[in-house]
Design a protein around this nucleic acid. Structure first.
Lengths: 116, 116
DNA sequence: CCCCGACATTGACAATCATCAATATAAAGC
DNA sequence: GCTTTATATTGATGATTGTCAATGTCGGGG
């Protein structure tokens, strides 16, 4: 299972939450921290910002390496982390890989904060 | 200047934002990443959760070390990071240090995501 | 079939981080 | 003033992370 489950509608424990919220379990905290870990880097925040504001809501890697002044492997690495966290969606068309914001992912992450 | 300025009402550039949002500057991204760095640890998320749900909205360090199963210096270290990020407020009363959520800090952090 | 362009993966390295043990500080009580 | 108690700071160590160079993969011409 990858870490993006924390950003998906809760399939289990959708109802019958234990009681209010008993602090925050160790395992649950670990999952939520994965999403914030993905956001805890300046270059990744800039990537999200660029992709969000891009024409058509998507960007290919080749358009992202220059504005960040980073090597292509590094950008690929950051994009992977964001995708693994469930924040970005990857679609390969031809030789290019297009990354776009997962709809509602940022909102769900924001909701994570409110439900602490 | 400490990092919590990103969570305070913007004193400069309160008006006259350059243009929509031109992606996200390197410096601005660095500041915002500091807040998410503070959230990017399971134990710190649990600390926030415990403090938020605590009676009176505050907890002293001695009440936090046991539920996390961490040493006292480590808990102190995490609390400092959360306080430096502008998420927690520290108040010393007698020998004890009481930590409480900075009002609105979590909401402002959530707003940070929406304004990417 | 071979080459080229776009992207991903691997390996290495420096930097940062989480944790603990030991020590320092500081307030309270005797 | 000393002892105790609660918290902070320092130093050390193992783990994680961000970055790049080198290499691998895969699709699209020629």
């Amino acid at each position: 299972m990858n870490s993006l489950s924390i950003l998906e509608p809760a399939t289990d424990e959708a109802c019958c939450a234990p009681a209010g919220t008993p602090a925050l379990g160790a395992e649950e905290a670990k999952q939520k921290a994965l999403v914030f870990k993905a956001l805890a880097d300046p270059n990744r925040l800039r990537l999200l910002s660029i992709v969000k504001g891009a024409d058509g809501g998507e960007s290919c890697v080749c358009d992202l390496t220059e504005p960040l002044d980073l090597g292509q492997p590094t950008v690929s690495h950051h994009l992977r982390i964001l995708a693994d966290a469930g924040l970005l969606h990857r679609e390969k068309r031809g030789t290019w890989a297009y990354y776009s914001l997962v709809p509602g992912a940022l909102d769900q992450t924001a909701a994570l904060l409110a439900s602490l």
